[in-house]
Design a protein around this nucleic acid. Structure first.
Lengths: 346, 346
DNA sequence: CTGTTAGCGCGTTCAT
DNA sequence: ATGAACGCGCTAACAG
């Protein structure tokens, strides 16, 4: 049989005090002119625990003018297998538990879906919004929401609008770091596997920057012309390079799947990874750990950025100042570039 | 500047009717002795849209005695890369949006964490609970929750207790289907890669069942003795089999990662997959699509089961009968077992 | 067909 | 140090 819910009033009655006192004690609102005797405080806490009291979320929300719920909208468009969003969501879920916030988790794919979600993200429903995406989703409805006064933190490469609070990352840095890593491991002739979408440009620039920093130049023939981020595209490019008998000793791939495709083609052609060619990907996907040759990868730090986004949002909700920030990508070195740092690096 | 929230009363005042009428119309509670003129109904809907009215979730909850929130507790212990939980969560998130339910998403790893979460899953906080896991988590705190009257649906292999509503799957069937698939594709000497945890037993029995159905027997030497579900363990076993020059033409692996490890070892040894040896894994992980040889796999149907769990839970919450069910695993045939059905099968 | 009344359970005054 | 009274915004029950 469904047991009756334990209300604040129940524990007040048991202790023969008023509900408001219990409320104050349980919510630690005893500053100023309010107070309670230490014995009373103890008794209240004990009784609450004994009865397994749990505040009725809706009632608290109603009187506190806080919904204690956050919207989390996720752009579900990462490369399959990268699971970028999963790590981020786990991080957010963890913190939301600690701070007793409920989540409105939604995935969207198109701008239309996004706009529909935005329409839902009302202050009567949530206290704030975390927007996880890959591209700077510059939707007008997002702008409306922000203007309406709802605290919003985005986790995009860079702010969709200057005034938006964002936890960003520089895509140029991602490939720059990747190139520098391979160069540090002795590579001199680097190939690049990317594609032609907007992300590509920044990453491509970063790759070039990494090379020129080391006084190297890229070979225009060692740049994939294929489209798409999937392994097949990379295999095709690699076969092409091998057919032309181009010389290269390292590959920066714009995704782990491309890196995997490159490794597939190299292994099939009898090349050794990392001895003959070193490979590095992007996203630090789960499968990097156990691929044929474990794949070195640059992480976009989604989990950390999500964590930061959560904390930033909570600050905003509490009216504290909360700046945007930019996170540095991190290298996870595995066998495909010669193994973890302790094996090869200084 | 934060705009004032639009309340029910605002739209009532504008239309010069009572709030309760607006409430009834907007919530489509017009059956029985309640009613409203078609013009009024239209006017109310129009005005609501015009003012961008959104019900205050907490207030509705409070008076309706429904929190409109669901707890989703996820056992985060799948094999890395399989992302079993992700698919399930996406499915649940989708439905929760449609039905306007908020989520309390939590991941747990240990029984202690689980018990702590259970303590949170109060009817004052959520209307019901979906529990996603792999092992039949028979926790006493779960039992308490169920007895307390909170609707709970589990997504476990099988019910933790007979009375619990569960969306299950037979692990025996998973490997049985896998074995049958390889046999149908011409394999006669099957090896098995698994390990020694509780899951193993059922899967091992299923594998044997699949063989004996076809009149085949297993070679005791072609059974991995390694521990763990990671690729390295599989590579080790394979090397052992190859060293002993055992004859085999198919491998059922108890996870995709084991299948990947097997493929790694086979390729390194110069064997062709699927021509010389066919391989099938379990979980239909994202990386199966683009592995060196794309990996055939048996899906545990987590997304579908989550969907079913959601619908079942909603039924329970609404007081309708909701039975447990068992879902049949599904084969995703890829190159490692000879390609998709249209290529090889009848 | 429409309106009035009375809470839902809590937190927050302000009074004692 | 404690309590009474009020209201958050909505919906349910009943009255007209």
């Amino acid at each position: 049989m469904p047991q009756a819910r334990v209300r604040l009033a129940d524990i007040a009655k048991e202790l023969d005090v008023s509900p408001s006192l219990v409320s104050k004690v349980l919510n630690r609102r005893l500053g100023g002119r309010s107070g309670a005797s230490p014995t009373m405080i103890q008794a209240i806490f004990d009784k609450a625990r004994e009865l397994d009291y749990q505040a009725h979320a809706a009632a608290s929300s109603l009187s506190q003018r806080r919904t204690n719920a956050l919207a989390v909208f996720v752009h579900d468009h990462g490369v399959r297998g990268s699971e970028l969003a999963t790590a981020a969501i786990k991080a957010i879920a963890g913190y939301s538990a600690q701070t007793n916030q409920r989540l409105m988790l939604q995935y969207y794919q198109s701008v239309e879906e996004f706009d529909r979600l935005m329409h839902i993200a009302h202050q009567s429903t949530v206290d704030g919004l975390i927007l996880l995406g890959l591209q700077p989703t510059a939707s007008t409805s997002l702008n409306l929401i922000v203007q309406r006064g709802l605290p919003v933190v985005t986790v995009l490469d860079r702010s969709a609008r200057p005034s938006f609070v964002n936890i960003g990352i520089k895509q140029e840095r991602v490939t720059e770091i990747a190139a520098e890593h391979l160069i540090a491991r002795g590579c001199r002739r680097l190939g690049y596997l990317g594609n032609a979408n907007p992300l590509h440009n920044e990453r491509w620039l970063g790759f070039q920057a990494g090379l020129s920093r080391a006084g190297l130049e890229h070979n225009p023939l060692l740049v994939s012309t294929t489209r798409g981020f999937n392994a097949g595209a990379a295999e095709q490019s690699l076969r092409h390079w091998l057919d032309l008998e181009l010389e290269f000793d390292g590959i920066v791939a714009a995704s782990d799947q491309l890196a995997a495709g490159a490794i597939n083609a190299l292994v099939r052609a009898g090349k050794r990874v990392p001895e003959d060619v070193k490979v590095i990907g992007i996203d630090n996907s789960p499968f990097c750990d156990f691929y044929l040759v474990p794949i070195s990868s640059v992480s976009q730090q989604m989990a950390y950025r999500a964590e930061l986004a959560f904390k930033t949002l909570m600050h905003m909700i509490e009216g504290q100042p909360a700046p945007s920030s930019t996170v540095e990508p991190a290298i996870y070195a595995r066998a495909s570039s010669g193994g973890p740092p302790n094996v090869l690096d200084d």
